[in-house]
Amino acid sequence: MSTSTQVFPSASEREWKLPSRGRVGMLSLIIGESALFTIFVVAYIFYIGKSLTGPTPAQVLEVPILGTICLLSSSFAIWRSEHAIEHGKMRAFVAWLATTILLGLVFMVGTAIEWHKLIYRDGLTIRTNLFGTTFYSLVGLHATHVLLGLSMLSVVLVLALLDRFSESQSERFAVIALYWHFVDLVWVVVFTVVYLIGR
């Protein structure tokens, strides 16, 4: 059976601290996701102005200022809720978390309205032209990630409301928050590429 290896205790090795696996795992996932987004972003940039037919971005895109402000401030809100749960302030935690979710929802509603307008008023669908294809894919991919984040946060919110989520799980929540920050960061890139450069 197992032999334990010898122990040569030395002062420096008494303290043996390793990074949390949740955080390492999430960071790895984020690196992978970044590569995924990079490919879509590169494709978007490459295809700017290559559509053979209209409509063009300049004709139909409006800068989603409100949605962007909401999404970016949700990063602040989730940071506050992280802070709250670390210090065991569950009320504040729930409040900030709910704010985060609300801000995320506003962003999603904004996207939905935008897409509705593009499809039904401007006749731009994913098959209309290259702009349509790249636009819906990139923005849609990001929106999918927002939805995923929102559902994770909602689960936490429900658990917290049922008193099933406590200070001891602050580490887990930090991991989810990390993901949310990443989704926000991606939006900054998407926003810049689609609405600033691409228009």
Partner: peptide, 13 residues
């Protein structure tokens, strides 16, 4: 979905 990423007829590459 009828996209055009690699559709050389529609300007894709």
């Amino acid at each position: 979905l009828g996209g055009h990423f690699f559709d050389t007829q529609a300007g894709g590459s």
